[in-house]
Design a protein around this nucleic acid. Structure first.
Lengths: 217, 217
DNA sequence: AGAACAATACCGTGTACACGGTATTTTGTA
DNA sequence: TACAAAATACCGTGTACACGGTATTGTTCT
């Protein structure tokens, strides 16, 4: 009574394997609260039918597709309709693909060996603001994260030196930094010399690169 | 018969709330395959007892703790025993804390409102190489990820310009770049002028900063 | 065939930078 | 209170950079 067709959540699907596609469609149609509004075999067709004012709440997509890749497709979908939540359902679980998909805006990532039950539960999690992920994929995501957010080099710069470094990375010249900190040009020159020594760098771009790469700021 | 005490997986716990701590201990002890080897009320005590050759497989820790924070604590634990998998169990779900925890090496992140069932299931997922995460936290992680891996600015640099930019970010001078690409100094000078114009920058550090921040390389 | 772009090359000028010195004052802490 | 570290300040020298020109040679697409 409560979940009528008009209140049910629309799902679009992109999946090139017809058998798999129909399987998922049946599964979704059997799930109260959801309905499979459209199903495509490639991104181009889906994008062609997409309107900003008539976009689905959820897009369920494969990654390996003929023509435009699923990644590229979801990028474009998110551009046209940022509110559409994308659930990736694929066989790939390599770092590269997972990373790309997440950067492209995926809100969930399941593998094709998932059970029907898991897929249905993922849809519910999605609408509740969760991010359903295959456990292995989730681990990959955390690993990637900790690797890129990793070392955070430490060269014990003094507080003032950090402040100068910060302004340096903003692109200010010595003169500009001196003015902003209300000290002499020569003072900044000295600070810079000390920073160069501590970071083992000899040019401002070297310092900027190191500061950004190792998140010193 | 199969899961004897000696084969069961050791869990250490750090949790300052005595009531909660004992609750979890009871829960773990009731779970076949796991046992709560040690339980501490702060990180200092846990670190004091930690030996590289006798570290637990799993560390279950709170974040808000008296003295050393849970984040700092797990950082040190992972330093001494990288194989130990840390499952965070806390009330905090803000971006900052989630980000820090993951960078410090957490393999899972649950909130304290989780049911006993969820916690037990998280332990199993952990040993199977998964990364149990609260759905909201998982969404936060994906959002953070897509934000930081986001725009990937595009200023249509020519192939040669990208190459020069790359070397520039490595910290090479015009002369060095020219030598490496076996062209004249003046050629690189011209390329740089064009890069500056395309990126709307006027200094090499500005270019380096933009290239690194917007991942142009 | 011609336009548009990429890559190459050259020059001069003014400015900013890198780095070698040296030296004083403030501040925290042993 | 004495010492170390941080912050401040000054100078000269040589080099590298930023940027204003101009110009030739290839591709490539129309």
């Amino acid at each position: 009574m409560k979940a009528e067709k008009t209140e049910a959540i629309a799902i679009w699907m992109v999946e090139d394997d017809a058998l798999f596609r129909e399987g998922i469609r049946t599964l979704v149609e059997r799930t109260p609260g959801f309905f499979c509004e459209r199903a495509f075999s490639n991104c181009e067709d889906a994008l062609n039918d997409l309107r900003t004012d008539d976009a689905p709440r959820i897009l369920l997509t494969d990654l390996g597709l003929p023509g435009m890749s699923g990644i590229e497709g979801m990028r474009k979908v998110k551009e046209l309709s940022p509110a559409t939540e994308v659930l990736v359902l694929t066989i790939y679980d390599d770092d590269e693909r997972v990373f790309e998909a997440i950067c492209a805006g995926a809100s969930g990532y399941l593998l094709k060996n998932s059970s029907g039950e898991e897929i249905v539960s993922a849809l519910s999690q999605l609408v509740q603001g969760g991010a359903p992920m295959n456990a292995q994929v989730a681990r990959r995501v955390l690993d990637l994260f900790s690797r890129m957010g990793g070392p955070k080099g430490h060269y014990d710069l003094s507080p003032r030196e950090k402040q100068v470094l910060h302004l340096l990375v903003q692109g200010l010249s010595k003169k500009q930094i001196a003015d902003k900190l209300i000290v002499s040009f020569y003072t900044i020159d000295t600070h810079l010399k000390n920073i160069y020594e501590k970071l083992h760098e000899h040019t401002r771009s070297g310092v900027v690169a190191k500061a950004l790469r190792e998140r010193l700021i």
